[in-house]
């Protein structure tokens, strides 16, 4: 079986972004970029399936600027086999991402698409579900456990209230949650090997998808700031303050 893993290049999770003074967006100049953490988990899961012999080929695809090649190289160094970069200078919205991925799926015919539940820049949590909808495939979101069972898969999902296990026919879209696995670091030899793995360069036009943003960003602003309050001396002090604030 072939697995397709879409990976997005995003601001590193440790960076606290700043809003631009002109309110047109956030300042990304000289900011560290990384693979979206949920996508790393998806790549790791695909590689483990391959190591177990359940998967023959892992194709990674990224939609973004030229530098997203680095993100693909990281995935290739983790164990993916080849990459596809669909270049776009505008940040592509989840619906257009889903349309591009649908076109890639139609060409590549994977048995499984493993992707992140959420890109930590836009925090949309949408592209996977949209892709499943457009393909009329079943979906299993927020996965904390994935077990392939021939023509179906059992997926345990992190849901409000606890865990839910569903069984989906393959092909399916599965989106990852934090507890699915702990992604590996690529070894130096694998990083070297990854440099020789192929990356196909494409454009949205190759797939006939319009990626112009449909939502107009009116402005981007800072959230209201919380002021640091006071330090309390002991338990009695804290309880007195909470009482006078009327919250206990």
């Amino acid at each position: 079986m072939k697995v397709l893993v879409p990976v997005k290049r995003v601001v590193d999770a440790n960076v606290k972004v700043r809003v631009k003074a002109d309110q047109t967006g956030v300042d990304l100049a000289n900011v560290k970029m990384s693979m979206n953490p949920f996508d790393e988990i998806a790549v790791e899961e695909a590689v483990r399936l391959k190591e177990k012999g359940a998967v023959e080929e892992i194709v990674v695809v990224s939609i973004g600027v030229q530098q997203a090649q680095e993100t693909l190289r990281t995935a290739l160094a983790m164990g993916a086999d080849r990459g596809i970069l669909i270049t776009s200078d505008v940040d592509v919205e989840p619906l257009a991402v889903a349309k591009l991925l649908k076109a890639v799926v139609e060409q590549e015919q994977p048995g499984l698409v493993l992707m992140g539940k959420q890109a930590i820049d836009g925090d949309n949590n949408a592209a996977g579900q949209m892709l499943a909808g457009l393909l009329d495939w079943p979906q299993a979101t927020f996965a904390s456990k994935l077990e392939l069972k021939g023509q179906t898969a059992d997926v345990t999902r992190e849901v409000d209230g606890g865990l839910m296990t569903i069984n989906v026919d393959l092909p399916a879209v599965v989106t990852t949650d934090l507890r699915l696995n702990e992604p590996r670091y690529a070894s130096l030899p694998n990083i070297m090997k990854a440099k020789k793995k192929p990356i196909d360069m494409k454009t949205p036009a190759d797939y006939g998808v319009d990626v112009a943003p449909k939502l107009k960003v009116v402005k981007v602003t800072e959230p209201p700031k919380r002021q640091a309050g006071v330090k309390v001396a002991d338990a009695a002090d804290l309880v007195a303050k909470l009482k006078s604030a009327g919250v206990i």
Partner: peptide, 23 residues
Amino acid sequence: STTSGKDCAPRIAAKLEANQITD
């Protein structure tokens, strides 16, 4: 915006050609 809402809404949005607005 519950886990169930986040699971279902984007799937429906895509079918309606809607750009879901999350959260």
